[in-house]
């Protein structure tokens, strides 16, 4: 039966990791602005154009 207790602790531990992840994501401000990040990742930097000009 100790196996169950071990599994139990493991499952709570995993859940706690997710909880910590959630708290970290809130703390780092990921939910403050829900518009910019998805748009920002689509911007292309055009290094070729920049360097060709110089």
């Amino acid at each position: 039966m100790s196996v169950i207790i071990l599994l139990l602790l493991a499952s709570i531990f995993v859940a706690a990791i997710f909880l910590a992840g959630f708290i970290w994501s809130v703390k780092s401000g990921q939910y403050d602005d829900d518009y910019s990040p998805p748009v920002r990742m689509l911007f292309d930097d055009k290094p070729s154009q920049e360097s060709s000009k110089k």
Partner: peptide, 24 residues
């Protein structure tokens, strides 16, 4: 002041505890 986040933490912890208690 920045948006208060305490309630979000409270919600997260309540959800975590609730689900695990249900499980057990």
């Amino acid at each position: 002041p920045r948006l208060p986040r305490t309630m979000i933490y409270q919600l997260g912890i309540a959800g975590f505890c609730f689900v695990n208690i249900m499980l057990m």
